[in-house]
């Protein structure tokens, strides 16, 4: 039986998205951390090192690193390797700015949500099928079992 677990958060950028979850439990950055031409996480200090953010529902608790984060995010989006959605526990202005510019310049809509309950980091796992629906401020996770 498929169980659906739902998390409520605050909407930073609207939209809907479906994809596999890619879950980091550490601070995350696109700046020097994701290769824009591939979408691969290159940050050796990230627990997602070697994974690809492309079309994933990316979750991490909070951001870190260089203020150029929005530029790296934007270049990743420009090259078609951006995530499907970004979910955080603390609002990350670099992601928000990068996603806004990505929509303005390249017409890609990437929903961004934040302020999820702390339990989400423990429950959500990489590979979970996730639906993001900002109209309902909700993220739904399907789980077999």
């Amino acid at each position: 039986m498929t169980k659906v677990i739902s998390f409520m958060g605050r909407v930073l950028l609207e939209g809907r998205a479906k994809g596999e979850a890619l879950v980091s439990r550490r601070a995350f950055t696109f700046a020097h951390g994701v290769e824009p031409s591939t979408g691969v996480v290159t940050d050796l200090r990230s627990d997602l090192s070697g994974e690809n953010v492309r079309e994933k529902v990316l979750f991490f608790p909070f951001g870190k690193g260089s203020t150029t984060g929005a530029a790296w995010f934007l270049e990743t989006v420009r090259l078609g390797n951006g995530p499907a959605a970004v979910l955080t526990q603390t609002a990350e202005p670099m992601i928000v700015t990068g996603a806004i510019l990505g929509e303005m310049l390249y017409g890609r809509k990437i929903p961004v949500m934040t302020d999820f309950p702390p339990t989400m980091a423990e429950i959500l796992r990489t590979g979970d099928p996730v639906t993001v629906e900002t109209k309902r401020r909700e993220v739904m996770v399907s789980r077999e079992g």
Binding site: L12, H32, A71, W72, L74
Partner: peptide, 25 residues
């Protein structure tokens, strides 16, 4: 998106313009 209530004036700005991070975009 970040919950600002308004825009406020600033005295100066400091910006980024290096190719290695800004890339083509």
């Amino acid at each position: 998106a970040l919950g600002a209530d308004s825009l406020v004036p600033i005295k100066s700005a400091h910006v980024l313009a290096h190719y290695s991070s800004l890339h083509e975009a």
